[in-house]
Amino acid sequence: MSALTRRRLVLGTAGFGAAGLVGGCDPGAPQLRPNPYGLSDWLTFAGQRLLLARQPLAREFGPEAISAVFPTINTTDPDDPAYRRSKAAGFSDWRLPVTGLVARPGAFSLAELKAMPARTQITLHSCEQGWSAIGQWTGVPLAQVLAAAGMRPEARYVVIRTVDGWWDSYDLFDALHPQTILAYGMNGADLPVAHGAPVRLRVERQLGYKSLKYLSSIEAVDRVDGIGHGRGSMVAGLGFSWYAGI
């Protein structure tokens, strides 16, 4: 669906909310699907952005709530040769490039990320398959990393790629949220390989598939409608919604 059609959608629902709250009017936003699902995706996105306008935190729990077993799905040990070498070296040579619309493009080592201000949160992980589990995550807020790289004002989205070939994008509303962290610790220990070592993303107000594992790069961009299928994420190409707040 073209940006023009999307703009018409926004205009057609004028009064639903301040247009500025509704990312659908953003010219670089992921393209809506050219079918009725584009409309329901947009309604869900716009409705939740209104609900979340004051940027509440997702619920956090005490340590007693941590699940004894936290399921793992999809990749649980990437067979990428470079990843295997890095894993064998305790990820000492691992680097996370931060590029795109930043004043100081570069790459962070695990030690550098751990030296930055950290956040620990015990949250409920909700998988689109229906299961849910509670885990404790420790990491550096993505906002800290973007600030350290000097993200430029024209940046509107953050594209994150992984060792196992996944990629997804996040608008700044979620990317800069305090609970959106690059987690290197889980339940008080180093992040296990099965859960995305050395660093995974946590996006607590969306379904689990937005919390990518095995991060390999971060890129700040002004639009995502030209990447991949233009729908903002790898899984959107498989028929899943880019926005996964539901």
Partner: peptide, 24 residues
């Protein structure tokens, strides 16, 4: 109550139904 976005805004839903799996 199964929506992580809605419950971030309205955590009372979890209290009402006794948790996400109870709601499911």
């Amino acid at each position: 109550t199964m929506s992580p976005g809605v419950t971030a805004a309205w955590p009372e839903l979890f209290t009402l139904f006794g948790g996400r799996q109870s709601a499911r």
